Simulated scan of single mutants.
Amino acid sequence: MAVMAYLGTVESIALLSNSRDNGFTGVNLYCDDEASFVDAPPNPRATEVAFCCGKQMQVQGDAFLARVFDNEDDFERLDFTLREVASSAQWVKEAAAQNEAKMRGDGAGSILRRMQEKKQQPAQQAPAKVLELKPAEAAKENGNAAFKKGDLQKALELYTEAIQLDSKMAAAYSNRALVSLKLSQPEAAEADCTHALELDPSNAKALLRRAAARKALGQERTAKVDYQAVLQLQPSNKEAAEALQALQM
């Protein structure tokens, strides 16, 4: 949640709604509510997860999943592992059945019956599948989780592991740069952002973070150039516009 709060407002989408049938345990997809306004890039993995759960939607920008217990009297966040983010996971099957039942106007009590009927029917088409994470991707996602918990050193180690496993993962460099900024290490942050931009010149996050690093290093002229580049990619980016205006005063 810390990362999403840093990016802006959060939209919560119930992929698996909590109900008496499932012990009041649901799975929510949290998205950046302003992603479409800043023209954030598509998030194919989150989109595929939602699709497998019966939610026809296009997810943009950063997103994460969380399992919750909520019976209207008590609320608790439960463990949810990366291994469970797969089309074969039981919760995904339950979510798909539940959302199909909702589309048909059925009550919650018919969900299990629908699931049993599906097992007995021949498959008409291949179901969508969520690809399993590669080792480098898993390390990056674990780094994101550590960052959300405020464990910056652990996040730094995991992003470094991701880069060692895949030296072309621009997001890992950009995310490690954010950690370096939080740790007051602008030189390291600038270097990582430059690596990220060599791999992905249109990475607005890397541009923003490099601008912040350069500003911290007293390099205001090059920081302005980076902020201007962000605004060329995302004209409505408030953070870049406000930072650029502050530098020009």
Rank of each mutant, 00 (worst) to 15 (best):
I111E: 09
R83E: 15
D200G: 00
S110D: 02
A188E: 13
M4C: 13
E220M: 06
Q124L: 14
G143P: 01
E137Y: 04
E94T: 04
R45G: 02
G218P: 04
E34A: 10
Q90T: 15
L183T: 03
N237C: 12
G218W: 03
R45T: 11
R176C: 08
Y173F: 15
S17R: 15
F51I: 06
D39I: 02
Q232G: 15
E11T: 12
A229R: 13
Q60D: 01
R221H: 11
A243F: 02
K149S: 15
M1F: 11
A2N: 07
I13W: 11
L152W: 00
C193L: 12
K129R: 11
N144P: 10
L82A: 13
F64G: 00
L247E: 02
A177Q: 08
E239R: 04
Q121S: 14
D32P: 02
A188V: 06
Q228N: 13
P186E: 08
D74T: 14
K129N: 05
P127N: 11
L217N: 05
A89M: 09
K154N: 11
N22R: 14
S19L: 09
P201A: 03
Q121C: 10
A216H: 02
L82T: 07
V85K: 06
F80R: 04
Q125P: 07
Q90D: 15
A126G: 01
Q116A: 13
K182D: 02
L7N: 08
R77Y: 11
Q98P: 00
E132K: 11
A241Y: 00
A212I: 03
T222H: 10
M57W: 12
A66G: 13
A95S: 10
P122L: 11
A212F: 02
A240C: 07
R114Q: 15
D151N: 14
Q245P: 00
Q245R: 13
N144A: 07
K148P: 00
L197T: 04
A66V: 12
M115K: 14
F147V: 02
E100M: 08
C193Y: 00
K182H: 10
S110M: 12
A206M: 07
A145G: 04
E48W: 09
A177G: 08
N203I: 01
R221N: 13
L29D: 00
C52D: 00
P235H: 12
S110T: 10
L217T: 03
E187I: 12
E190S: 14
E11L: 07
A95Y: 01
L78W: 04
V230R: 01
D106L: 15
P41H: 09
R113G: 11
G54H: 01
R214F: 07
A196V: 05
M103H: 10
C193R: 02
A138C: 04
P135R: 05
E141T: 04
A14I: 04
V38C: 06
N22P: 09
A189Q: 05
V59T: 04
G107A: 14
A212R: 01
A5T: 10
P135E: 07
A66Y: 01
T194S: 14
D32C: 10
C52L: 01
N22L: 09
G107L: 11
L16Y: 03
F69H: 06
A14W: 10
G26W: 02
G143Y: 00
Y227I: 06
R104V: 00
V3A: 07
Y227D: 05
F69A: 07
A240W: 00
D70H: 09
A2V: 09
N142M: 12
A35E: 01
Y6G: 05
